[in-house]
Amino acid sequence: MEYSIELEQYILDHIDDESDVLKELNRQTHIKMLQPRMLSGHVQGQILKMLVQMIAPTNVLEIGTYTGYSAISMAQGLEKEGATIDTIEINDELEPFVKPFLEKSGFDKKINLHFGDALEVIPQLDKMYDLVFIDGDKRVYPEYYDLLIDKVRPGGYILADNILWDGKIVQELQKNDRYTKGILDFNDQVKSDDRVEKVILPIRDGIFLIRKKH
Rank of each mutant, 00 (worst) to 15 (best):
G82W: 12
H14V: 01
V43H: 03
A75L: 13
D130W: 05
L51V: 07
I111Y: 03
V60Q: 02
E93H: 07
I11P: 00
I111C: 01
D135Q: 09
S40I: 13
L131H: 04
L39K: 11
G77H: 08
D137A: 12
L113M: 04
Y66I: 09
K80Q: 13
L39N: 04
P142Y: 07
I90C: 08
L51Y: 05
E81K: 14
Q46T: 13
I122P: 03
D135T: 10
S73H: 02
D146T: 14
P57H: 14
I85D: 00
L22D: 03
Q28V: 13
Y129G: 04
D13T: 05
H30L: 08
E24P: 04
A75P: 03
D117Q: 08
N91Y: 06
R139W: 14
T84G: 10
S40Q: 11
T87A: 01
M128L: 13
I55V: 09
K23E: 15
E81H: 12
R37W: 11
K138T: 06
A118Y: 04
E81R: 12
Q53D: 06
D16V: 10
T29Q: 01
G41V: 07
T65L: 00
S19I: 10
H30V: 08
M33N: 00
Y144H: 12
D137M: 11
L25N: 03
Y10I: 12
D108I: 10
E95W: 08
S19A: 10
V132F: 02
M50Q: 12
E79T: 15
K80D: 10
L102S: 03
D17G: 12
D86R: 06
E120P: 11
K23D: 15
A56D: 15
K110V: 15
A56K: 14
I122K: 04
V98N: 01
G136V: 05
D135R: 04
D20S: 13
E79L: 15
Y69E: 03
S19L: 09
E143G: 11
D126I: 09
Q35N: 10
H30N: 10
E103G: 14
T65C: 01
L131F: 07
D126S: 07
Q28W: 13
S73D: 05
N112Q: 05
T67Y: 02
G64E: 00
V43R: 05
L61G: 02
E79G: 13
E62V: 04
K109I: 15
D20M: 13
L12R: 05
I85K: 02
D108K: 12
I31A: 09
F133I: 14
K99C: 09
E93A: 06
M54H: 10
P96M: 05
S105A: 09
K99R: 15
Q44D: 09
G82A: 04
D130E: 14
H14S: 01
I88L: 01
I134T: 08
V21I: 15
G64M: 04
P36F: 06
L113I: 03
K104R: 08
V43W: 09
I134M: 07
A71N: 08
E95V: 10
D126Y: 12
M128I: 13
M33P: 01
G77V: 05
L48V: 10
P57D: 06
